[in-house]
């Protein structure tokens, strides 16, 4: 099998090391340019199964704001991000929303929940 070099920037810490990763198929042969061991872990993960935490908003009916911020409980596979955003776009919550409320359970079958980032109190009748 042929070896191939891939360039990555490690985002584990703010330093942002420029990594050169040598891969053979799915296997990481060598990681260079990293300043610490976490760079190797990052390269392996990023090439095999890149994941990102996703934060966005979801509509809320009757709240002090029309939207509630939400986040994925843990990082989701990068290729599924826009599918997730489409799912979230379909949802409308009803105020009050509580911090930590599960907005979508097991989103896209990933086993990961989408949770509310904060409280959105109901809009009081008087205001």
């Amino acid at each position: 099998m042929t070896q191939e070099q891939k360039k990555l920037i490690c985002i584990t810490c703010p330093r942002g090391c420029a990594l050169v990763v040598t891969v053979e198929g799915e296997t990481v042969i060598k990681t260079e340019g990293n300043s610490c061991k976490r760079g190797v872990d990052y390269a392996t993960g990023e090439l095999k199964d890149p994941r990102r935490m996703v934060t966005t908003t979801v509509r809320v009916k009757g709240g002090v704001h029309p939207l509630a911020p939400v986040y994925t409980e843990s990082p989701i596979p990068k290729p599924r991000i826009f599918d997730l955003l489409a799912e979230v776009r379909k949802i409308e919550l009803t105020a009050p929303v509580k911090f930590g409320d599960v907005v979508i359970e097991n989103v896209l079958g990933t086993g990961i929940n989408v949770l509310a980032s904060r409280n959105i109190p109901a809009k009081s009748e008087t205001s």
């Binding site: 908003t57 979801v58 509509r59 939207l67 379909k90």
Partner: peptide
């Protein structure tokens, strides 16, 4: 448009 426009 609204942020959460369904048309997107």
């Amino acid at each position: 448009r609204p942020t959460k426009d369904k048309e997107v």
